[in-house]
């Protein structure tokens, strides 16, 4: 398929809005398209999503393909793969990018397999090899201990991109673009997946991904009571509480606040890591933080290698005293 051209972004929409990751992907896609001197297109799939097109154009897309059908209301693998297959075969992009999200990680490998090409998931950097026009895809491997750079000869080159790895453009509502409506052409009988229920975990206070201060507890917190203490501190700092994987697995903290390779990716202004050793699997979820503050009693813990400020000591003594002092200073 030597006539493959352009970069296509699979755009996710939540509650009628372009998601952050979609904005970031459009920013990254714009740059790649410029490097290739080719077009940047966006694929919007869903039910009642056509009105998103102008926003996607404002964020950098040249051409928008909209597949809008009631059957596409919920993400269902079989339906979405069929749609992606149809549009990609019609447009023949050189590159197809998706977000490393619940949808992207499910859709990308299956769609790539069907299109007889390869995919790389959870990338953090994308470049063009100018000699071959191939996409060079950087991805953390070995639980974040190493990075690999991959490429592929098959087209389109499919990749999913980790949240916050790319930067969105400043939206420009004066940008012009073309909108193409594509018929889903789905046979309802071929869709075997049913979404019975969606359960949203309750979150109190500030959403973890949006918080400018995150207080995270690790294995060393030792139990659910400790997380209550961290919540208090987070309240004082107007932030949110996160956790590494072990406390979530142990049930001390809900799964939805897990930060790391297999959890959420956050990049707050201040990240306070309490009794967190700094394993690569966890750092994969927070290394984008602007200022990491480590509190750990093991002076040799890896977290200190990533931190700007560190305190070596027992968090049980440090956290209450820290909270008290912060309150005192805030009241002045």
């Amino acid at each position: 398929m030597a006539d493959n051209k352009g970069v296509m972004i699979f755009v996710e929409v939540i509650d009628g809005k372009l998601t952050n990751i979609a904005q970031e992907l459009l920013g990254a896609g714009r740059k790649l398209a410029n490097d290739l001197s080719e077009e940047l297109s966006a694929l919007i799939v869903g039910s009642g999503v056509a009105n998103i097109a102008p926003e996607a154009i404002a964020y950098g897309a040249d051409k928008i393909y909209v597949v809008d059908a009631p059957l596409l209301k919920d993400y269902r693998t079989d339906a979405y793969v069929a749609v992606v297959e149809k549009v990609v075969k019609q447009v023949n992009p050189r590159i197809l990018l998706l977000g490393q999200t619940t949808i992207g990680r499910d859709l990308a490998p299956r769609a790539a397999c069907r299109l007889i090409t390869g995919a790389i998931l959870d990338c953090i950097a994308l470049d063009i090899d100018t000699a071959t026009k191939q996409l060079l895809i950087t991805k953390p491997v070995y639980g974040g201990n190493a990075r690999a750079v991959y490429s592929m000869e098959t087209l389109p080159q499919v990749a999913t991109v980790r949240a916050k790895a790319m930067t969105a453009l400043v939206p420009d509502s004066s940008r012009k673009g073309q909108v193409v409506i594509v018929d889903a052409g789905l046979d309802p009988a071929a869709i075997k997946t049913n979404v019975l229920q969606k359960v949203v975990a309750e979150t109190t206070g500030i959403k973890l991904e949006d918080a400018s201060v995150v207080v995270t507890g690790g294995r060393g917190i030792g139990g659910p009571e400790g997380f209550k203490q961290l919540e208090e501190l987070a309240k004082v700092l107007k932030g949110a509480v996160g956790a590494t994987r072990p406390p979530c697995d142990a049930g001390w903290a809900p799964d939805t606040i897990q930060i790391g390779l297999t959890g959420k990716i956050v990049s707050p202004y201040v990240y306070i890591a309490v009794a967190v050793s700094g394993a690569s699997q966890h750092m994969a979820g927070c290394s984008g933080s602007k200022n990491i503050i480590a509190i750990n009693r093991d002076a040799e813990a890896a977290i200190f290698k990533e931190a700007r400020f560190g305190v070596v000591g027992d968090w049980k003594k440090i956290i209450p005293a820290f909270e008290a002092k912060v309150k005192e200073l805030q009241s002045k």
Binding site: T117, G118, I120, L136, V141, N145, A146, R147, A148, V149, Y150, S151, M152, E153, T154, I292, A294, A299, F304, K305, E306, A307, R308, F309, G310, V311, V312, G313, D314, K317, I318, A321
Partner: peptide
């Protein structure tokens, strides 16, 4: 294989951490 590994490397960590001292943990 469809995917080619161009490179495998370890990221360098070079943050300089300022350790905050004190007599006691408090």
């Amino acid at each position: 294989r469809r995917i080619k590994t161009r490179k495998l490397f370890q990221p360098v960590r070079d943050s300089k951490c300022e350790i905050i001292g004190g007599e006691t943990d408090e």
